[in-house]
Amino acid sequence: MDGVFNQPEFGPCPACGVLLQVEVFPALFRKISTGRSGEAIMVEGESSCFYHPQKKAVLPCDGCGRFLCALCDCLFDGRHFCPACLETGKSKGKIQNLENQRTLYDGIALALAIFPMIIFYFTIITAPMALFVAIRYWKAPQSILRRTKIRFIAAIVVSLLQIAGWITLFIFLATRHGTHV
């Protein structure tokens, strides 16, 4: 087992001989704490949990202020939430650390503006779509990483150029048709 854990270089795995470097941290040896179930109310008139009226309230939810028992107390980022607030925070994106997915509307708008140019006939449909997506989702939350609005701007510029091109083409065809008549 020596020569594998917390060493600066690779060492062979004692079982299969594969070269490994393993950094072990104290969390590996930490026991997983068990959850609390909440105390039952002993004295009448004691504050009770909003979700479990038979259990004693221990603190209020930092989100909605409802009283919570130890079972309903969800500690997250140093704040105490009830399960409902955690769910709301996740679904509405109010607790950023709970979000595990975001749609990149700027990427969608740019793809709608750029890729159909390969077969440019499609741009008659996709250019207004790209413009719509860019304007509709301009203020929508983007990536949680820092990201500029350059993709939105590029999508708007490209789609406006495409729309202008189509309008020009139609005007040209209409006027040419008109002069022939």
Partner: peptide, 21 residues
């Protein structure tokens, strides 16, 4: 490119990091 998914690993919870050649 159209959606991102996130996985968070809290520093206090990381037990080990393994590098295999």
């Amino acid at each position: 490119g159209y959606a991102e998914t996130y996985k968070r690993f809290y520093l206090r919870d990381i037990q080990a990091v393994t590098i295999q050649e």
